[in-house]
Simulated assay, not measured.
Amino acid sequence: MVKNTGQPAYLQIADELRQQIRGGSLAPGTPLPSTAQLAEQYDASLSVVKMAVGLLRNEGLVIGQQGKGVFVRDDVPPAPPPADELAEIRLTLRDLSERLAKVEAQLSDRR
């Protein structure tokens, strides 16, 4: 069910379906429930559910087959690293860049 969090309903639905896909609850090749079933499950309109599924399509997590439904892709791309991990990577890169600049400066001073 969609909650009153301030986040749009289609994003909440997409987040939950994404977690199910990445967590293995919805395995590769598995069909998603129909739009009507998802709308009933999340107590949302059909258009909200379609927006959520469209978002997952754009992310490459699901693929639609005309007349058959929407399925979890066999080759689901890996999840991006969490935001805090990205911040840590950026700090490490900055530190390495500074250290490299110092080494290059020392080497150029020796010439």
Rank of each mutant, 00 (worst) to 15 (best):
K3I: 09
N4Q: 13
N4L: 13
T5K: 07
T5E: 03
G6R: 09
Q7K: 13
P8V: 04
A9Q: 06
L11N: 05
I13E: 05
E16W: 06
E16I: 08
R18W: 03
R18N: 07
Q20F: 06
Q20I: 01
S25V: 09
L26N: 02
L26G: 01
A27R: 15
P28C: 04
G29S: 05
P31Y: 06
P33D: 08
T35N: 09
A36S: 12
E40L: 11
Q41R: 15
Q41V: 05
Q41P: 05
D43H: 10
A44F: 04
S45C: 07
L46E: 08
S47D: 09
V48L: 00
V48C: 14
V49Y: 06
K50I: 00
K50Q: 14
K50N: 13
V53Y: 00
G54E: 08
G54R: 00
L55F: 10
L55T: 15
L56Y: 05
N58V: 12
G60V: 02
V62G: 04
V62F: 03
G64F: 05
Q65P: 00
Q66F: 13
Q66L: 14
G67Y: 08
V70P: 01
V70Q: 03
F71T: 08
V72D: 01
R73D: 12
D74P: 00
D75M: 06
D75S: 12
V76H: 06
P77S: 03
P78R: 10
P78W: 02
A79M: 09
P81T: 07
L86E: 12
L86G: 09
I89L: 15
L93Q: 15
L96E: 14
L96I: 10
E98C: 05
L100I: 14
L100D: 12
A101F: 09
A101C: 06
K102I: 09
V103S: 12
E104P: 03
L107T: 05
R110G: 01
R110F: 11
R111I: 11
R111P: 01
